[in-house]
Every structure is written in structure tokens, then in C-alpha cells.
Design a protein around this nucleic acid. Structure first.
Lengths: 330, 330
DNA sequence: CTGTTAGCGCTTTCAG
DNA sequence: CTGAAAGCGCTAACAG
């Protein structure tokens, strides 16, 4: 390659990495040779010599749904523009598996890492710190955290949604939550609901918080459960949208009127929320923006800028048709 | 590291790669040293020396939906078991972007590559062939193709579904298809519908095939369009399930009875299909199995086995409530 | 601005 | 079964 262009290997390298540092005539010769030979630099060799792999790791709880899929897609796109490649792994909400993936990715020499949430063993953060690579924890913006976060305030979002339902007149709530263990987003959302209710002096007994793996069928099942209780809740807050879908579907099947008999609210505003009937009242969370901002942040750190992560991203309460004042007669 | 264990670097390498080739006492010493030092081999150095990166590329049209997300998740899991890491990219159904991703991944030294569909420029296949790495084209099983395929027979699946609708008595069909250009799966599905109708002597005029980007809203729009025509179709076949969701939602909103007035059938059987009301008649396609078989196949090739890709995977016609005989009076 | 010179941290012959 | 030696293909000082 260097011979073909009649220059030294170092010059070829410079053409590829810092073209501005090469006089244009030589650069031209190199570029021609590159095209002629179909030359493609060897990634591993570059990585070994330069100590940068141009790969960025991303570990999501799952990638088989629109929620994280959107963020992943945008994240990948942004990084591809800058010549970075994304290595993904799915943890299945399993802390051990996540830890193994972190180790594995670090070993593969990723230049930066994206993780979801901040709740994990300090060992993992130590591993990352040892490698001195930029990383970011997404989906949650915790100003008190020592880790760089990009996301939104799950507590405030849940609190706001709950306030809205309280203002409508609701007093008997249940919450459908994803598994709380190790999931700080889920914990935050419960906390937000609790804060609002506390502030309004409304009780939220422990058995009013149902915890299940994420899924539509789980939403259906919880809905059946709570609606056969007496008194039944007048408002159901779902910490994850699939639960809300399940609740709405189950309500339709059992002829329970939504929102007249019971209000149902979700979280995330995925594509289905607005299509459902009744359309779902929910909190719109910035999935794509998270992917984008995370990419921007890591790219900046990779360039050496010591920028701080952005302020919490905004969420929006989207009021649709699945919520209304509670039934008058009790 | 080698010093810590009191052996040569070569022995350390052997312990990591072919432990069976090292006597157990030395192996023990090395393993202890690994643990003590928290030693993690340097991926790029391994890749450079061994000419294998232990990374596998995967380019999907999109990863922000359950369809490809499921396949990606399983693919990644299977490969992680064997110590491989998955590098993903999304092409956005754009051939140029896909080509750039292929080049980029090849440059990063992936050991194998997964692609969706077989329709792409020969240049790309040449690039891959030049690298001599195993690859597989998924989502489609084309026995006549020169490329290793893992998937199902889209033509037969669509044909079977159409046969079913014809048997129900339908004669006026429309098809909602994704963009056909560069998408062999979409083309196959149209072809399958056409074959069934031809065989039954039922016409399918060109304007009965509507082509749109994938999406629920597009499904709604096409539904509005065709249902205001006279005569309106009695059966709508959707080449992609979101179109069917859109059609069902729009029908509900406009009080068009499904299936009494019009039958709607989808393709893929994603999680929503069974939850919809009416529940959607659709073709179940083996998304997860594709991910799994693709991983198995590539792993085998990577080990040197010259196995052939599996036979076409099975699809199943799932008959639910969104299809019925056409309205009697015409 | 450009060439020369050393490696990057592993794996892999090849002897022993 | 094990060690010594020779790179893998590139980048990063360092002179010129």
C-alpha cells in the first residue's frame, strides 16, 4: 500500500487519520492507491497501535422492544456518523449477566460504554474506572449520582402523573410496577407515585403495588386481580406501558368501562399508546433523545472535552382518553 | 502476567485458548494468577495476532421494533455463550447505508456477518467474499440463491394465507405492502398473494397493491383509501403487521365491522396480534428461531464445519377473529 | 511536512 | 507439553 503510493507507511496512516497534516499532492497519491487497491485498514492493528478501538459498547436490559430499540437505533446512527461502531448486549434485567457483558466488552477494548440505570455493583464501576473510558448511565437523571447520567426524572414524571389523577378526584390507586430489584427506574416511578399520594394524604398500602415482569399478559393478569377486589381501585398507574395495554385490553374483554369505571395511565408513550381505544393517558419519555444525547456526550468525552451530561431531559404528561374523574356514586 | 504465574507468555495464551493443551498444574498456576491480577486479555492484540476478532456483525433494516429486535436479542445471546460479541448496525432499509455499514464492519475485522435478505449489490458480496468470512442472509429461505440463507419461504407463507381467504369466499382483495424496492421479503409476499389468486383465477389489479413505508399510520391511511372505493375489497392482506394494526384501529374508529364487512390479515404474529380485537389472523414467522439458527450456523462455520444452512423454517397460519367469509349480499 | 524506528499485547510456529 | 522468537498491521514519537 505504502509502496503503491510511493510514500512511507506513516504518511498513509496520517492520510487516514489526520489528512490535514499531509500535503495535498501526496494525499492525492495515497487516496488513489487506496481506491485502486481497495485498501481497508485493519481495525485490530489500528486499535492495538493507537489504543482506541473505535467501538462503543451498549448494554440494554432488552433490545426486543420499541422502548430500548429506539434508543439503540439512534445511538448507533449518531455514532456511525463519527466512524464509531456499536457493540450491543442485552442483560435481560439480570445483574450478573450485565456484569459479564461489561467485562466482555471491556476486554474487547471498547472506547466508551452505555449502561441503563445506575444501580449496579461498585465492582462494575471499578472495572470501568480502571479502564479509564467514558461511560454514561441512561434513562434516569440523578443529580446526586456520582455517575454521569442522561435521562429524565422518573420520580417527578410519576409524581406529576399521579397529581393529575388525584386532581381528577381519584382516591383509590393501584400501581403496576416492573420488578423493582435492581431496576432504579421502576423504583423511582413507585417513589414518585408515593410522594404525590403522601402529599395529598392518600394511602397507598403495600398490596396496592403489584410487581411483575414486563409484559402485556402480566398487565391483564394484574388488572383481573385488582378489579375483583372490593373496593376496586378507580385509578391504575402502570410503571411500564405494556402493563397498561394489557389492562386496557382486559377491560375491553370484561366490559369494564375505561375511563368511566376505572382510569388507566401508562408510562413511555410508545407507538401503541395513541392508537389504543381508549387512547392512553401516559407520560411521554424521550427515548430517542436519550440515544442521541448519550452519543453526543460520549463523543465529546472521547474528543477530550470534559463536558457535563445535559440537564434532565423533559417528559410530558400526555392526557388522552383512558383517564377521567372516578365514578361518582360509591 | 506470565511472570506472576512463572510460565512463558505462550503458556498463558494456551491456557486461555486451548486449556486442554496445558498440564493441569501449570494451568492452575495461570488461573490463579489471572484471578489475582484481574488479568483480561487485550482484544485487539488477540485479534491482530490470531486474525480472529471474536466479533460478529449484524445489519438489520431497523432495530427499533419487536420484529428484528427479537431476532437480534436471540442472536446476541447465542453468540455471547460462545464468547462472541455482536456489532450491530441499522440500515433504515437503505441500500447505500447498508453498504457503508458492511464496509465499516469488515474493516473492524468481524469474523462473520448477518444480513437481512439477499437482495443487494454484487459488490457487497464481493467485499465479503474477499474477506473470506462466513455470512448468512436471514428472513428468507431461497433455495435457488447462491448465498446461505436462513429463514422461511415468504412466497409460500403468503400464498397459503391467501388460499385460506379465497377458500372463505373472498374475491376482492387488496394488499398493503412495504416498499418493494430492495426488499425481497416484501416482494416475495406480494408474489405469494399473486400466485394464489392467479391459480384461482382471481384478478389482482396493479392498483390493488398499495406500497408504503412500514407503520401503523400508513396502515390506517391505506385502509381509509381502499374502503372508500367502490366496490370496496372484502379482504385486506398486509405484508407487514403494523399495517394490519392500523387497518383494525381505523376500522374500529369508522365503525367498519371486522371481519363481517372486511377481513384483515397480517404477517408475523408479533405480540400485539393476539391482543387486538378482533384478534388478528396472521402468519406466525419464526423470528427468534431465525436469530438462533443464524447464530448456530455462523458458529459452526467459524469452527470450520462446512454445514449447510437449515431447511426453510416453518411458518404457521394463525386463524383468529379478523377474518371470516365475505358479506353475503353484494 | 515526511520518513525512520520502535513497539502495541497477543498468538503461533518451531524446536526442544 | 513448554519456551523462544518472530511477527500480526498499524500508529506515534522523533528526527530531519
Amino acid at each position: 500500500m505504502a509502496q503503491e503510493a510511493g510514500v512511507s507507511p506513516a504518511t498513509v496512516s496520517r492520510c487516514l487519520n489526520t489528512p490535514a497534516a499531509v500535503r495535498s499532492d501526496k494525499r492525492q497519491r495515497v487516496e488513489d492507491a487506496v481506491r485502486k487497491l481497495g485498501y481497508v485498514p485493519h481495525g485490530a492493528a489500528r486499535a492495538l497501535a493507537s489504543k482506541r478501538s473505535r467501538m462503543i459498547g451498549a448494554i440494554f436490559p432488552a433490545v426486543d422492544n420499541a422502548l430500548f430499540g429506539c434508543a439503540l437505533e439512534v445511538f448507533q446512527q449518531e455514532l456511525a456518523h463519527e466512524g464509531y461502531t456499536v457493540v450491543v448486549a442485552a442483560s435481560g434485567y439480570d445483574a450478573d449477566l450485565e456484569a459479564r457483558h461489561v467485562r466482555n466488552l471491556l476486554q474487547n477494548g471498547i472506547d466508551a460504554l452505555l449502561l441503563v440505570g445506575t444501580a449496579r455493583s461498585p465492582d462494575i464501576y471499578r472495572l470501568i474506572a480502571a479502564r479509564q473510558i467514558p461511560y454514561v448511565a441512561v434513562w434516569r437523571s440523578d443529580q446526586t449520582s456520582e455517575h454521569p447520567c442522561i435521562g429524565f426524572d422518573n420520580i417527578a414524571a410519576a409524581e406529576h402523573l399521579t397529581d393529575y389523577l388525584v386532581d381528577l378526584g381519584h382516591r383509590r390507586f393501584v400501581m403496576f410496577s416492573g420488578q423493582l430489584d435492581g431496576n432504579d427506574r421502576a423504583q423511582d416511578r413507585v417513589e414518585g407515585v408515593r410522594r404525590s399520594l403522601d402529599r395529598h394524604g392518600i394511602p397507598l398500602p403495600a398490596n396496592a403495588i403489584l410487581e411483575r415482569p414486563f409484559g402485556v399478559d402480566e398487565g391483564r393478569e394484574m388488572f383481573r386481580l385488582v378489579m375483583t377486589e372490593n373496593p376496586a381501585p378507580t385509578a391504575i398507574i402502570c410503571g411500564s406501558e405494556p402493563f397498561a395495554y394489557g389492562a386496557v385490553f382486559e377491560a375491553a374483554e370484561r366490559n369494564i368501562a375505561v375511563p368511566d369505571q376505572v382510569s388507566i395511565a401508562g408510562f413511555d408513550d410508545l407507538w401503541l399508546a395513541s392508537q389504543l381505544s381508549p387512547a392512553l393517558t401516559t407520560v411521554r419519555t424521550p427515548q430517542r433523545e436519550i440515544g442521541q444525547e448519550a452519543a453526543k456526550y460520549l463523543l465529546a468525552r472521547l474528543k477530550g472535552d470534559r463536558i457535563a451530561p445535559p440537564r434532565p431531559l423533559e417528559t410530558h404528561l400526555i392526557i388522552r382518553k383512558s383517564t377521567a374523574p372516578p365514578p361518582a356514586a360509591l
